[in-house]
Design a protein around this nucleic acid. Structure first.
Length: 317
DNA sequence: AAGACCCCCAACCGCGAGCAA
DNA sequence: TTTGCTCGCGGTTGGGGGTCT
């Protein structure tokens, strides 16, 4: 949390600011700024963010406007604490995707990558740390106490099916962290990353899709195709529908992604056929204008039918 | 009551990708 | 091919508020 910058003219002293940036505010957003941005977005939809900043009469950089909109002002955002089901999902998807927060967020309706990242870095890491400290009394690990660093600095780390991102992230699980994954059956899920696939996935409306494998994003199925392999093996799986996929253009939003692992690394390449829409923002006001600001939703409860096949995580209490 | 400490989370930062000129 | 711009992402920071002593 940062203090709202005193207004405009007092920001001149920022030595990093060029002349053109002198007027740009930083820090917390005021209610007035929120209102301006909200009103502009509702009336005009998303365009070039620097134009948004300028045209909305905001003394902010476009980047800041984008962040504020995505993380706070978007009408579809869910508020409040994460439910246990959401926690399970986050852990599940983190085991599969690593720190690719945006991809995890895309699978959690109404949640932002920032929110999930913060939640992971505070709550879940803390729990992992707690669990590891309790388990390390018998199996002391020099890394057990440092779950905050996710750094691949120990050859004993178990490379589990996660991690990645285009930035060379390597998701590894130190032995001390294994219980949290094991407890939630995530090790099994790493070997069988989307168990729901065996039993059918979900359409955008939350109803079950019974024939997934081999039907790449079938006509009614909002799944994109993903190839995931573990430890060199590859298999076809389907990425759950992204929250933003509208019912009108879902087939155009299919995502093709290849993820494969070897013993030490995680590789991914993805091809978002309509990448911008993956965040669910680009077409809000275009396709959905008449329907109000709604997003394609997928039923969390239905999803949890499968995710709940994980043994319940005992750290919710 | 007051100071120290801790934690959460909003927002910033830096980087890479994509694209157009 | 290079340059400049925008966007999106993940990592990090630091202030506010809660808790502890």
């Amino acid at each position: 949390m940062r203090k709202p910058e005193p207004s405009t003219s007092t920001v001149k002293n920022n030595k990093n600011n060029s002349m053109s940036n002198n007027k740009l505010r930083k820090g917390l957003w005021s209610p007035e700024e929120d209102e301006k941005l909200m009103r502009y977005m509702l009336n005009n939809g998303q365009g070039c963010w620097s134009d948004v900043a300028r045209n909305a009469g905001l003394e902010r950089c476009g980047k800041s406007c984008r962040l504020r909109w995505i993380n706070y002002l978007r009408p579809d955002l869910k508020r409040g604490a994460f439910s246990p089901q959401e926690e399970d999902l986050i852990i599940h998807f983190h085991s599969l995707l690593g720190n690719r927060w945006s991809q995890i967020a895309a699978r959690l309706p109404g949640r932002t990558d920032n929110e999930i990242k913060n939640f992971w870095n505070s709550t879940i890491k803390k729990r992992i740390k707690l669990m590891s400290s309790s388990s390390s009394s018998s199996t002391a690990s020099p890394n057990a106490s440092d779950s905050s660093s996710d750094q691949p600095n120990n050859k004993d780390f178990f490379t589990a099916g996660g991690g990645g991102g285009g930035r060379g992230f390597m998701n590894i699980i130190p032995p001390s962290m294994m219980p949290i994954y094991a407890d939630s059956s995530l090790i099994n899920h790493m070997l069988d990353p989307f168990p729901m696939i065996e039993h059918g996935g979900y359409y955008n409306n939350g109803t079950q899709c019974t024939t997934q494998v081999g039907s790449v994003g079938g006509e009614n199925c909002g799944f994109g195709e993903t190839t995931i392999g573990v430890f060199g093996l590859e298999e076809e799986i389907f990425v759950p529908p992204l929250e933003s996929v509208s019912t009108t253009d879902q087939d155009e939003n299919l995502k093709t992604e290849t993820i494969f692992y070897d013993h030490n690394n995680y590789y991914s390449n993805s091809n978002n056929i309509k990448g911008e829409n993956m965040m669910g923002i680009g077409n809000y006001f275009e396709d959905d204008q008449d329907q109000g600001l709604t997003m394609g939703e997928w039923d969390l409860e239905d999803l949890m039918k499968d995710v709940s096949s994980f043994p319940s995580l005992d750290y919710h209490s």
